[in-house]
Amino acid sequence: MDVPLVAWFVFTSFVVAVLVLDLFVVHRHATEISLREAAWWSALWVVLALAFGAILLWWQGPVMAEEFLAGYLIEKSLSVDNIFVFALIFGYFGIPDQYQHRVLMWGIIGALAMRAVFIGVGASLLDAFHVTIYVFGAILLLTAWKVLRHGGAQVRPERNIVLRAMRRVLPVTDELHGQRLLVRTHAGWAATPLLATLVVIETTDVVFAVDSIPAIFAVTENTFIVFTANAFSLLGMRAAYFLISGAARRFRYLQTGLGIILAGVGVKLLISDLYKVPIWVSLTFIITVLAVTFAVSWRATSRRPGTKPPDRDRARDDR
């Protein structure tokens, strides 16, 4: 179903307004985000996403609303896994809590731009070459297999190709300079550790997009739904990071749940020419897997509070 250009304009204006307000008004100065503030912002973004789904239900009917909710749940669950990776990157560069918000905000802006490109390319490929649907399905099954078997690979920022290339033309200072990404030294311009961190986060998000974009195309080919679900997930991820980054042990079975979801939507793509799985079935499947995953994780960690947290040093940066 085609969406009028005015809807794209209104939603994009909303996203831009939120980003500008956050960067230059609400969080203009570097401050550490408290757990209470993170919880409020996280709840607000979930409410806004659900409200947007309600608007779609009233405007376009139940199918588009269900597609948005399914896509949002997929992106939201994947973003939780991404949060642990970002926490490792911040730890590697030694970024204090009060500066992490600014890096995440610029990272979200870059991620939104990259996701828009990925969505446009993905939609064009699906429209021009039907075989792309099988490529997406194969990618999801391969990713699911890697997640279920290995849980991902270690994050090694020092091996990041883009960061190494940047360091050849732009030196990186050893110390921070407030919230600045670039500083002028006696030898010329230099990058701060904040910029180095941002580069690693942005390039890591490219890898994440390889999972998330094919996954959401498995539940809808409507580019408006794909983009809005990604946008709400990314905008809410910043607050969710400060809320759950330190609670990795509570999500010990998250990788298993994500692997099952990716495998399920991958199979949905591969059999789409033989059978069109109803969107409500996909939505029920995603909600059930997430509910069971979090319930089992919570029960396991609650019963053994003294158990050593699982190793979260493994992430998915080289799938």
Rank of each mutant, 00 (worst) to 15 (best):
P305Y: 10
T301L: 06
V289Y: 08
L254M: 10
Y275H: 13
S272L: 07
T288D: 05
L283Y: 08
K268C: 07
G264E: 08
I261D: 01
V289T: 11
R299M: 10
R252G: 07
A263W: 03
I279R: 09
A240C: 12
R238K: 12
S282E: 08
T301V: 15
G236C: 11
I279A: 06
G266S: 05
F232G: 00
F251L: 09
L290V: 14
V265R: 04
M237H: 04
W298C: 02
F285V: 13
R250H: 14
I244R: 03
L234W: 08
K276D: 12
I225F: 02
I225Y: 00
Q255M: 08
G257T: 02
S233R: 03
Y275M: 11
V226Q: 04
I244K: 04
V296S: 01
L258E: 02
G264D: 07
L254E: 02
T223C: 03
R304V: 12
Q255H: 12
F251Q: 09
I271M: 09
T228H: 01
S233C: 11
F285H: 06
S245T: 09
A300N: 11
W298Q: 13
I271F: 05
R250G: 11
N230D: 01
K268P: 02
I261F: 03
A300K: 11
V281A: 14
I287A: 15
L258Y: 00
V267M: 11
V267N: 08
T228E: 01
F294D: 01
T288A: 15
V265H: 03
L235S: 07
A247Q: 15
G266M: 02
S302R: 15
V267W: 10
F224K: 00
L269Q: 13
G259K: 06
T284L: 14
L290A: 06
V226Y: 03
F251S: 09
T223N: 11
V296N: 02
K268N: 15
R303I: 07
F251C: 09
S297Y: 12
A248R: 15
S282H: 01
I287C: 10
I271D: 03
F224H: 00
S302A: 15
G266I: 02
L234H: 06
A263H: 01
R304Y: 13
D273W: 10
I279P: 06
G257Q: 01
P278V: 05
Y275E: 04
T284M: 11
R252M: 13
F232T: 00
F294G: 02
I279K: 07
K268R: 15
W298F: 13
S282G: 01
W280D: 12
L262G: 04
T301R: 15
Y275L: 14
V281K: 05
I225E: 01
R304A: 15
V289K: 09
I287S: 12
Q255Y: 06
S302C: 13
A247C: 07
I261T: 03
T301K: 12
M237A: 15
F285D: 08
A229R: 00
K276P: 00
A291V: 13
T301Y: 12
G257A: 02
M237T: 12
I225C: 02
